[in-house]
C-alpha cells in the first residue's frame, strides 16, 4: 500500500512536470523530409489528406508490410487455436 502511494506520487510529479514545464515550447522534429512532404504532397499525389498521401504513396512499403503482418498474425491465430473438429 505504501509502495503504491509512493509510485503514484512519483508518476504524478513526472506528469505534472512534463505538462507544466514544457508548456509553451514547441518541439517539432525539424527534418527535411517532413518539410518536403508538407509542401509537396498535394502536387505529387492529388490527395487532400496528408496521411493518406504518405501511407499510400511515399511510404507504400510500410503499408504493404503492415498488411503482411496482419496476414501472418491471422495465420498464427488460426494455427494456434486448432481443434480436432476443425478439419470438416
Amino acid at each position: 500500500m505504501k509502495r503504491r502511494a509512493i509510485v503514484f506520487t512519483v508518476c504524478m510529479l513526472v506528469a505534472l512536470s512534463v505538462i507544466f514545464i514544457y508548456n509553451d515550447t514547441s518541439h517539432f522534429a525539424d527534418s527535411p523530409a517532413a518539410k518536403y512532404y508538407i509542401e509537396n504532397f498535394k502536387k505529387d499525389t492529388f490527395a487532400e489528406n496528408a496521411v493518406a498521401a504518405i501511407y499510400l504513396n511515399y511510404r507504400m512499403f510500410d503499408s504493404i508490410f503492415e498488411t503482411l503482418i496482419l496476414l501472418v498474425s491471422v495465420t498464427a491465430v488460426i494455427n494456434f487455436s486448432w481443434r480436432r473438429d476443425d478439419e470438416q
Partner: peptide, 23 residues
C-alpha cells in the same frame, strides 16, 4: 491518381475487415 488512392484504400479496408473478423 484519385482512382489509385480509392482503390488502394478499398483493398486495404476489405483485407483488414476480413482479418479482424477471422481473429
Amino acid at each position: 491518381h484519385l482512382t489509385y488512392l480509392i482503390l488502394m484504400n478499398l483493398l486495404i479496408g476489405l483485407k483488414v475487415a476480413s482479418g479482424l473478423t477471422i481473429i
